[in-house]
Amino acid sequence: MEPTIYASLEDVTLSFGENVILKKCNLKIVRGAITCIVGLSGAGKSTILRLLDGLIEPSSGHVYVDGHDLCHTPERKLVELRQKTSLAFQFAALLDSLTIGENVGLPLREHTALSDEKIRHIVDDALESVGLRHIYDSLPNELSGGMLKRAGFARAIVTRPELVLYDEPTTGLDPIVTNLITDTIIRLRQKLDGTAVVISHDLHSIFRMADYVAMLFEGAIIAYGPREEIRTSSNPFVQQFLTGNEVGPIPV
């Protein structure tokens, strides 16, 4: 059966002044799958997540999420569309002044009329999903990097979004926590029965969780396919990236 597309970038160009980030970039995000985007640091991977979340607009081209074009959409409509999407930030981006429980429950408190008791129950469930039920009353500055990221995941999934975007979830973590985070992403994808896009540099983690892998280079997707296809790709750019070889078409 042909996979259905949940989100896509079509001929997206994004530039800030003379600095061109994306050039006619095309990408398809398959519904119900985990798509990992790899590429050099500063290649524009996180920018793709922000485009998919409607936080920035492309200079030209179109960004579609669940059939809706996010470009030139009024902010009020974007707020509605963002209910379907969640972004788990690289450094969690939890609000310093709120406890973890308040952070995770914030979207529910602001967007629903649920009772405090019901919200507490949902938040506990979300924290349980990431193995952090015991930190409801902790403040963000009391947590380790790995716990912060998982708390960020809990906030991202608390509204049960259809698309979860993870920005470098394993960067800067030790191998054990990296494995834990990778397992959590796989488990959350299954629990939500949704779609996920993950930006990562950790190849081991990528090939464990990805259904599809896309490689971004010089503002465009130069390789895309199921993970095994990418792992065995003969594309010299992909090969150099996967082997970490300093010699090859990618300038160091």
Binding site: V79, R82, S86, D96, P107
Partner: peptide, 17 residues
Amino acid sequence: SMVVTEQIDALRSMGLS
């Protein structure tokens, strides 16, 4: 500080003004 630590983006991402 909230801008540089992406907390403002997080608010917008959650659909909060």
